[in-house]
Design a protein around this nucleic acid. Structure first.
Lengths: 205, 205
DNA sequence: ATAATAAGTGAGTAATCACTCACTGGAGGA
DNA sequence: TCCTCCAGTGAGTGATTACTCACTTATTAT
C-alpha cells in the first residue's frame, strides 16, 4: 500500500469537505485547489481527472470507514450475550457505531449523495458491501428466531424496520437535533423494537 | 393563480426529470431545453435564472404534492377507528401515501437531494411544513397515550421510529426491491411497531 | 387586411469549467 | 559546483456554462 503525501492528503480532505457541503458537481477544481492551498495543476498531478478524485474520495471513505461502521461483532453478541435480554450488548455496539458515523457525517453524506449519480461507483464500492451487510443482519435475526427469542417475521422486513428507526435517529441527531441524548434514544428504539408501542393491559406487569 | 402554458409545463417536466436523474448542478440548461423541445432562450423567458427554475420545480412539487402526502386525515382516524386495533385504518392511509410517493418518486428525490445544498430553499419550502408534520404525528401519539392505547414513550422518539421504518420501506421498494408487496410490508411494520419483535412465551397466545 | 402584442428562436457573450504543459525552485548525489 | 530529479506552479487551452438580445413567427384586436 503506497503512502499518501501530505499534499495529497490536503487535497483529499479539501475535496471531502467541499463535496459534502456543495456536492461533486457544485464544486470546482479551482475551489478545491484554493481550500487545499495548492495550485490547480497539483491536483491533476495526483488525480488524472476530477472524477478520479471523487473515486479516490469514495475509496478512501469506504476503505477506512465503512468496514468499521458495518462490521458488527455479531458472533460475539450471539455467543456472549444472553439473547433473552440482547439489549445491553447491542446497545454498546450501536453507541460505538453512532459515534463513528457522527464523527464522519460528512463522509456519510458524500456516499449517500454522490453514489446515486454515478452508477459505476455504486457497483464498484457498494456492490458487495450493502447486500453482504443486509444478509449478515438477516442472519442474526434468523438466529434469534431459531432460538425462540424473536418472533418469526420475515428477516428482511424485521431488519429493515430496525435499520430505518436507527438510521433516522442518527440523521435526526446529526442534522436536526444535536441535543438528542443518543444513549437514551437507543434505549428507547430498542425498547420499541423489542416490545412494541402498544399498552399491554392484560400483561404480566 | 396564473395558468402555466403548455410550453412552460414541458420545461418544468423536463427539469424535474433531469434534476432527479443528474442533480441540479449536473444538469445544463441546454439539456433541459433539448428535453423540453424548446430553444434555450425560451427557458429564460419563463425563468430569469436556472436557480429560479429550481425554485419553481420545488415550489411546484411542494405545492401540488407534499400537502396531499403529508396531510393525514388524523381526526377521522382518531374519531372513527377503534384505537384498540388502529392497524386497519392506519394501513389504508399508509397505502394511499405509498402510492402517491411511488408515483412521484422523482419529485421526492429532488426535494431530498437538492434542498440540502440550498439553505434559502430549505427555509422557504420546508421551514414550517416538516416541523408541523412532526408535531401533528406526535400529537396523534400523545392522544393514543392519553387514551391508554400506546405506552408512555417520548412521542418524538416513537414517531421517529415509525417514520424511519416506513420511509426505509418505501425507499426499499422504489429504489432496490420493486417486487416488494407493499401491503404485506405495511402489515409487518405495523405489527412490529405495535407488538415488537420479541417472542412472548408467557403471553396469552 | 393590418397593426399590435406575445411567444419563441438561436447565434452570440463573458465567465467559468476541467485540464495541460513548459516551467521553477529546492533537495540530494557526484 | 554542477547535474539530476521531481513535486509543485500558474498562465493558457478549448469546451461548456448560464444567460442575452435582436430577431422571426404566431396570435389576437381592430
Amino acid at each position: 500500500m503506497k503512502k499518501r503525501s501530505e499534499t495529497q492528503q490536503r487535497i483529499l480532505d479539501a475535496a471531502i469537505n467541499l463535496f459534502a457541503i456543495q456536492g461533486y458537481h457544485g464544486t470546482s477544481t479551482a475551489q478545491i485547489a484554493k481550500a487545499a492551498k495548492v495550485a490547480e495543476g497539483t491536483i491533476f498531478k495526483y488525480y488524472k481527472t476530477k472524477k478520479e478524485l471523487l473515486r479516490s474520495v469514495l475509496g478512501y471513505i469506504i476503505k477506512e470507514l465503512v468496514p468499521t461502521i458495518m462490521q458488527l461483532p455479531f458472533e460475539e453478541i450471539l455467543r456472549d450475550c444472553s439473547l433473552d435480554d440482547p439489549k445491553a450488548a447491542i446497545k454498546q455496539v450501536l453507541l460505538q457505531k453512532v459515534e463513528l458515523i457522527s464523527k464522519n457525517i460528512y463522509c456519510v453524506k458524500i456516499v449517500i449523495n454522490e453514489i446515486q449519480y454515478h452508477e459505476d461507483l455504486k457497483e464498484e464500492y457498494l456492490g458487495q458491501l450493502v447486500p453482504g451487510f443486509i444478509k449478515l443482519m438477516e442472519e442474526v435475526y434468523r438466529t434469534g428466531v431459531s432460538k425462540g427469542v424473536f418472533r418469526d417475521i420475515n428477516p428482511h422486513t424485521a431488519v429493515r424496520c430496525f435499520v430505518g428507526s436507527f438510521a433516522l435517529t442518527v440523521l435526526d441527531k446529526n442534522l436536526l437535533n444535536p441535543q438528542l441524548e443518543i444513549s437514551r434514544e437507543i434505549d428507547a428504539i430498542l425498547d420499541i423494537y423489542i416490545n412494541g408501542v402498544i399498552e399491554k393491559r392484560g400483561s404480566n406487569g
